[in-house]
Design a protein around this nucleic acid. Structure first.
Length: 277
DNA sequence: ACCCTCACCTGCACGC
DNA sequence: TGCGTGCAGGTGAGGG
């Protein structure tokens, strides 16, 4: 379910919880979770490896190991990690399990089966097909206003769908795309290459703002090791959304009704008055 | 190289 | 109650 801020929180939590731990057994319970690594290979490449650190690239979580391998994991819509005592029964939809030396195990659980994993050589990490086409990290110097203006010019797609393309802009998902457009007062149906320089500069800043705001919020939360899903939702964070999931509610700026439309088969929320064409 | 639709899964909320 | 429909924070493959 997560967008970049939630993945950031999950990666930080995992780094706290499992780095320096040694995987004594790795089990791939659902083969299609890691189609590039048959279960025996998956197990062999992770066995007896110590996790050096956990970080992320875009929405991909990277477990760096001391044996020159890296485990890439993507949560997609419903994946999550759980650090559980071995005596605890595995939850439904557990698709991979990593046993540590202290009677604890890290479980990857995924109700919708969209998540995936892959073990790669760390030396080749940035050239893997999962990572090599990703846009620059949103808080790196490579993602700057000039980059953003230039990449906008390459596409006639509507700006909402454009923002979801991780090879163009990294980190936004369906919620924060609507939120960033609202903050920048940009209509979601405008073609990317029709956005003015002035608006592009504002939108660039708002993309960083929504991501940073959300990461800051997540850093104040206590993560439950038994449910490392990065979810801010259900904890009241929904109240921070200015337009997402607020169809027909009053806009915080103008009190006009927030509208829901469908773009690329997915919901977009916006204020027609604050975000005119 | 681009666009579009479909596909991958399960569960939940809703209307009849 | 049951059943059908639509929807859910993501992306890839395959066709035109």
């Amino acid at each position: 379910m997560p967008e970049l801020p939630e993945v950031e929180l999950v990666a930080r939590s995992l780094d706290q919880l499992v780095s320096k731990r040694k995987i004594i057994v790795a089990e791939l319970l659902r083969e299609r979770l890691a189609p590039a690594n048959p279960p025996a290979e998956f197990a062999a490449r992770l066995k007896d490896a110590t996790i050096t650190r956990v970080h992320r690239r875009g929405k991909h979580i990277l477990f760096e190991l001391d044996n020159a391998e890296t485990l890439i994991a993507h949560l997609r819509m419903s994946g999550r990690f759980m650090l559980l005592p071995v005596e605890r029964e595995l939850p439904k939809y557990s698709h991979a399990v990593f046993y540590f030396e202290d009677e604890m195990r890290l479980v990857f659980q995924d109700q919708r089966h969209f998540g995936f994993m892959r073990v790669v050589e760390t030396a080749n990490l940035s050239e893997t097909k999962e990572l090599k086409k990703l846009a620059p990290e949103p808080f790196s110097d490579d993602f700057n206003a000039r980059y953003f203006r230039d990449v906008l010019k390459t596409s006639k797609k509507n700006i909402k769908e454009f923002l979801l393309d991780q090879t163009k802009v990294l980190g936004l998902g369906n919620i924060y795309a609507s939120e960033a457009l609202f903050l920048a007062k940009v209509n979601p149906q405008i073609a990317a290459n029709e956005i003015s320089t002035r608006k592009a500069n504002v939108l660039f800043a708002k993309i960083r703002d929504v991501l940073a705001e959300s990461i800051a919020h997540g850093s104040t939360l206590n993560v439950n090791p038994e449910n490392i899903d990065g979810s801010y939702y259900g904890g009241g964070y929904e109240n921070h959304w200015r337009v997402y999931d607020r169809e027909k509610e009053p806009c915080g700026n103008c009190a006009g009704a927030i509208k829901r439309i469908v773009q690329g088969g997915r919901s977009t929320y916006f204020c027609p008055r604050c975000q005119p064409k």
